[in-house]
Simulated scan of single mutants.
Amino acid sequence: MNTSPTLSMVRRAAVAVALTVAAGVAQAHEGHGTHGLTAGLAHPFAGADHLLAMIAVGVWSSVALPSAQRLAGPAFFLIALLAGAVLGVQTGVGLFVEAGVALSVTALGMLLLGRSRLPAYAGFALTTAAGLLHGLAHGAGWPLDSTFAAYAVGFVAGSALLHAAGLLAGGWLARVPAWVWRLQAAGVGAAGLFMFASRI
């Protein structure tokens, strides 16, 4: 069976991330981390910026990518999400990150408008950048009384659920009239601009 180089690379990176997170969970002390797992799982659902961005990535991947590569968009996002969270915990983040998260929603709305007219590598670059910004925000929200590994498992799992919802929604949106598609894509972009204006 032939596997595309892009999908193969994503699979290798995803396995590496999964092993890293699993190793961190294995080191967590018994009785600790429940709060972190719950907080991490809830975080992607707690704000419209995270909800819209992660669903948008799934929708774009469903509509713009070949069926064999459909999981690549969410995979790039999740890998960057985890990397950004680790960076956010180590360095801390400022207000610029929240503004960047809002702008990433607008950028993903524009990606939806472009649909399959943009090359896949441009979509992967954008979803990776968005994942990094959202990861920085997740890292800043880490509850310090819990293990980071448990928190990370939670927000990666919650984000993956939202990507899955986007993939399912994309299958339906691919069949709607063009004006409905443009309307929902513009709505995502406008929501990002509104959030950006409220954060500057």
Rank of each mutant, 00 (worst) to 15 (best):
149 A>L: 01
144 L>A: 14
160 A>K: 05
125 A>I: 02
53 A>G: 13
51 L>P: 06
66 P>V: 14
121 Y>Q: 04
52 L>S: 11
132 L>S: 07
99 A>P: 12
100 G>E: 04
172 W>G: 02
175 R>P: 03
166 G>W: 10
118 L>T: 00
116 S>L: 11
32 H>Q: 14
3 T>C: 09
127 T>R: 01
190 A>E: 07
162 L>Q: 14
192 G>N: 05
155 F>G: 01
20 T>I: 07
165 A>Q: 08
126 L>P: 11
163 H>P: 13
54 M>R: 08
192 G>H: 06
105 V>L: 00
167 L>M: 14
82 L>K: 02
159 S>G: 15
57 V>M: 07
105 V>Y: 12
51 L>V: 12
198 S>T: 01
99 A>Y: 12
68 A>V: 02
94 G>W: 04
65 L>T: 07
114 G>F: 09
138 H>D: 07
52 L>F: 10
8 S>F: 00
12 R>K: 05
196 F>H: 12
141 G>V: 09
128 T>N: 02
38 T>Y: 04
193 L>G: 11
92 G>A: 13
99 A>S: 15
171 G>A: 10
84 G>E: 10
18 A>P: 01
97 V>A: 13
52 L>Y: 02
76 F>C: 15
145 D>K: 00
120 A>V: 03
123 G>L: 09
46 A>S: 14
73 G>W: 05
184 Q>T: 15
107 A>M: 11
75 A>H: 00
43 H>R: 15
15 V>W: 13
177 P>V: 13
120 A>Y: 06
54 M>V: 10
168 L>I: 10
75 A>L: 05
72 A>P: 06
47 G>W: 10
167 L>P: 03
123 G>V: 01
146 S>T: 15
124 F>R: 06
126 L>C: 15
136 L>R: 07
69 Q>K: 07
145 D>S: 13
189 G>R: 01
24 G>K: 06
37 L>Q: 08
153 V>N: 05
33 G>N: 01
17 V>H: 11
14 A>L: 04
15 V>A: 06
129 A>W: 09
92 G>I: 11
49 D>Q: 05
55 I>H: 03
132 L>G: 00
62 S>H: 04
48 A>N: 13
185 A>T: 02
106 T>K: 03
103 L>Q: 08
110 M>Y: 08
82 L>A: 15
157 A>G: 05
33 G>H: 03
186 A>K: 03
55 I>G: 03
126 L>K: 01
92 G>V: 12
20 T>C: 09
3 T>P: 04
188 V>H: 07
179 W>G: 05
81 L>W: 06
26 A>P: 06
166 G>S: 01
129 A>R: 12
58 G>K: 09
144 L>E: 15
26 A>R: 01
81 L>I: 10
179 W>S: 13
5 P>R: 10
143 P>E: 08
62 S>E: 03
99 A>G: 14
108 L>M: 15
186 A>Y: 03
37 L>V: 04
99 A>D: 13
174 A>P: 09
75 A>N: 09
2 N>E: 14
182 R>V: 09
1 M>C: 00
142 W>H: 15
116 S>E: 12
7 L>D: 03
80 A>F: 03
79 I>G: 07
121 Y>M: 14
89 V>G: 09
53 A>T: 09
99 A>I: 04
143 P>H: 10
167 L>C: 05
67 S>L: 10
